[in-house]
Structures are given as structure tokens and as C-alpha cells.
């Protein structure tokens, strides 16, 4: 158990958005966070990386309250990839990845060999070494997401938090992005919308609904027709796919197929 929340609550504008969530992620595993829009996924992720302050409860990293860490120490340990973060500044791919070195560098320090290596290594891991000097605004959505992941890797984290990294990507890039994240072998918490992708790539899944944790466990145990009906209000059929993974088929209104 590396990163964990203990009965965490957070509210915005008088509404309780995150309502007493306790969860944890095992080292080097991928935890998927699913739930309908407004269920509190993004807010929970922001509490996990201390971008928002918990109203009550505690977030721990190796059993230490993350509120006790300096923001800089936290950034050397844990990296966050936002959903669709973009910029008007004219940056190259390498400029963006370099930002990941921010928590490792003192105010007036110049670039060290260690920084260079971290940047090169990060670009290599996401397969963008040859795009080193390409301007940010000429990249496609999938490439931008990979650059953000490279920027996060340049922080040399052990924990990686991603907020819907496949949003707005075509299916090929959704698959390759998640495969890439999985290959990294870091402790990951990923918010996802697509239930099939979550089931395909995550070791464990936590389901949020109205700010509460309603289910947690292995994908095949959690993603049942009953739970999906309760949480998402959608009827599904579940098929056994190749490699022990399962496929979720959505049933459109009026299509009364038999359930297995």
C-alpha cells in the first residue's frame, strides 16, 4: 500500500463532492477509477495529489500524511497528468518534458547531466525521442498526451495519477496510451470512462457514485450487470473474452436480449 485515502471528504460550493472515501493502491499496480460524470473522480484524484485540500480524513503516502510533505518533495514522488492540459506558450516537446524537472532543481541551478538523462529517458519511454524539437501546438491529441506522460516521468515518480488520459483520443490511441501507462510499471491511479478499457487494463477497479465508493476489487468481480445498472443506469450483457478478460456489451433501450 503506497497511496491511500482514509475516509476523505471534500466539498465545493456547499455540495459534498467526495463523501468519505477510503481506498488504497498496491505498489506497481494500476487502479482504475470509474463512475458517472460528477461522481467525484476528478476531485478525488486532485485530493490524492494535494491539488485540493481534504475537508476531513487523510491522504497518506507510505503511511505518511501527504499534508506533511513539502509540495516539492511530493512532486518528486508523485506525478499528475491532467485531462487535456494545453498552453498558448510556444514550447517544444523537450521544453514541456523539461518542466518535469522543476521539483528537482534549485532556484538558480543550471541543467545537470542527471536532468538531461531523465528527459531523454522519459521521451524514450513514450516513444517520442525523434519529436524532441517539435513545437507543442503541432502535435496531435495522442502525442500531446504522451508528452504529458513523458513530462510526468521526468519527475521520476513512483506514483502516477492520470485523469481520463484517453479522453478525445481515437480508439487506437486510447489503447496505445493505456498500454503505455501499463508498461511503465508504476503505481498508477487512472480515472476512466470506458468500462471495457478499465476492465482490460486495470488490476483493480474502484467505482464511485455520488461521491461515495460503491465497489472495489478485481474488474471481473466489480463490473457486474447489476452494479452497472445501479451506478450508470445502463443495461449490459457481459461476455467472456480472450485471455480471461471480459467484454461489456451495452443494451440500447427496447433491445431486450437475454442475459447470460
Amino acid at each position: 500500500m503506497t497511496l491511500a485515502t482514509h475516509d476523505v471528504r471534500w466539498s465545493a460550493g456547499g455540495h459534498l463532492i467526495v463523501d468519505g472515501i477510503t481506498l488504497s493502491v498496491e505498489p506497481n499496480r494500476m487502479l482504475g477509477l470509474i463512475g458517472p460524470n460528477g461522481s467525484g473522480k476528478s476531485s478525488l484524484l486532485r485530493l490524492l495529489c494535494r491539488m485540493r485540500k481534504v475537508a476531513s480524513g487523510v491522504v497518506t503516502l507510505d503511511a505518511r500524511d501527504i499534508g506533511d510533505l513539502s509540495r516539492r518533495d511530493l512532486a518528486r514522488r508523485l506525478a499528475f497528468v491532467e485531462q487535456q492540459a494545453t498552453t498558448d506558450v510556444h514550447l517544444s516537446v523537450c521544453d514541456v518534458v523539461r518542466l518535469g524537472r522543476t521539483p528537482h532543481r534549485a532556484a538558480f541551478a543550471s541543467w545537470t547531466r542527471e536532468d538531461e538523462e531523465a528527459i531523454d529517458h522519459a521521451l524514450e519511454r513514450v516513444g517520442l525521442t525523434d519529436r524532441h524539437d517539435q513545437p507543442w501546438h503541432t502535435l496531435s491529441g495522442g502525442e500531446r498526451q504522451r508528452v504529458h506522460i513523458a513530462r510526468a516521468l521526468a519527475q521520476e515518480p513512483r506514483e502516477l495519477i492520470l485523469d481520463e488520459p484517453t479522453n478525445h483520443l481515437d480508439i487506437q490511441h486510447q489503447l496505445s496510451t493505456l498500454a503505455l501507462i501499463r508498461r511503465l510499471g508504476l503505481t498508477c491511479i487512472v480515472a476512466l470512462h470506458d468500462l471495457n478499457l478499465a476492465s482490460l487494463f486495470c488490476d483493480r477497479i474502484c467505482v464511485l457514485s455520488a461521491g461515495k465508493l460503491v465497489a472495489a476489487g478485481m474488474p471481473e468481480a466489480v463490473l457486474t450487470p447489476d452494479l452497472i445498472r445501479r451506478v450508470f443506469g445502463v443495461e449490459v450483457r457481459i461476455h467472456d473474452g480472450a485471455g480471461g478478460r471480459r467484454h461489456i456489451e451495452y443494451i440500447i433501450d427496447g433491445d431486450q436480449g437475454e442475459t447470460p
Binding site: S70, A75, A79, E82, L99, G100, T102
Partner: peptide
């Protein structure tokens, strides 16, 4: 420099 992608991004960079 870290503000290029917004305040949340800057925060996550420490």
C-alpha cells in the same frame, strides 16, 4: 515556466 499549463499543472510540479 511551470505555469505554462495552468496553476494545477504548476502545483503538480511542486
Amino acid at each position: 515556466d511551470a505555469f505554462a499549463f495552468g496553476t494545477d499543472a504548476a502545483r503538480s510540479l511542486g
